[in-house]
Design a protein around this nucleic acid. Structure first.
Lengths: 190, 190
DNA sequence: GAGGACATGTAATGTGTTACATGATTAA
DNA sequence: TTAATCATGTAACACATTACATGTCCTC
């Protein structure tokens, strides 16, 4: 009867495997590590940690703050570590990710090609920005204390981002050229 | 107060812009057109159509079935068409799509490299299959009655899939090689 | 004294899938 | 007769974000 699908609680376990953290810390760490392919809101994190504690997968230690609020620092228990390993072994649940850009582009014939062009242009800029961020992230990895054993895995995820963004940049350029062509012929044929 | 974000009702409007359809039809059409980047379940479609009708964006016509159940066929009203155009002009809401494969890969140091390798291998096969499907889809487009004006937009969405899948195939191959290297050194160093 | 970072948490709301319920027709 | 396809719809549940509520300390 146990649903093993839930990626969110397992993501929390994974993050706590890096080091003991509070809910607040987790949010920070996400944004500077896996933020480009995973995110969690406080509304998921705090109740999630509470549930994991009730299941004995993490343990809480309240740290009296010196000049700051109390922190609830959670760490993985042996059970939690085992649970994480089991989840990692399960096949990846594949979903079709929704792509609103493609949806709008698909129905682009209803509006001026200019509209689609701007959507693609915005996406292009975003991809270029992402490529820049991946560079920063890599620098951060090399400097900061990422365990030797974890480093190649970080790099693999970064590399997917790079391959993806580079391909998207190419597609954007081709698509913008195509949209420009459509606009020119629309104007020329008038 | 109106939330304009809702992509799902707008997706329904877009699909009905192709031709009048029943909720059942919509599901079929999705799977043979935009299914690789968008999907809707009946639980969204039927209540969604009802709501759109109440707002006057679509109109319902019940067609008595000859040897099959009655069909509720919906068509776009002028208001619906206008609403669709307005939505198409709004900037694309950008979200970070979650990627469970990357999440598992990121924490791959906790399990044998073999486990990650198999996840990537499965993803590789899926991408290759996708590339094949895009070919089929394109053939279908050329044969069937897709309006001339809509065709280039279909092709643009297909091309994004192609660029993406091709990049992913390359990444998978590189990543599998890297994982093999890790496994060899782990074995060699023992 | 205003604003921002630190810190925790809940409630309301939105979004979406899955399973269920129903029932006819058609092909194996 | 059994399964698949056609067809519509609801209810329960799962998942997630946002806004709100609260309060401290530190810097400008």
């Amino acid at each position: 009867m146990k649903m093993e699908g839930g990626a969110t609680p397992n993501a929390l376990l994974g993050l706590l495997s890096l080091r003991p953290m509070s809910g607040y810390d987790i949010r920070q760490v996400i944004s500077e590590s896996i933020g480009y392919f995973w995110s969690e809101s406080y509304g998921q994190i705090y109740p999630g940690l509470k549930r994991l504690e009730a299941e004995g997968l993490v343990s809480k230690k309240t740290v009296r703050g010196k000049g700051s609020p109390d922190r609830n620092v959670y760490s993985l228990t042996e059970d939690g570590r085992r649970k994480l390993r089991e989840w990692l072994k399960l096949p990846v649940a594949e979903v079709v990710p929704r792509n609103e850009l493609l949806l709008k582009l698909f129905f682009g014939a209803h509006v001026s090609p200019n509209v689609s062009r701007e959507h693609v242009q915005a996406f292009l800029e975003r991809c270029q920005e992402d490529l820049r961020v991946y560079g920063e992230l890599e620098k951060g990895l090399r400097k900061k204390g990422v365990p030797e054993s974890q480093l190649p895995f970080c790099m693999m995820t970064l590399n997917m981002g790079r391959h993806r963004s580079a391909a998207m940049v190419k597609w954007c350029e081709e698509t913008i050229a195509e949209l420009d062509k459509i606009e020119r012929t629309a104007k020329g044929g008038k």
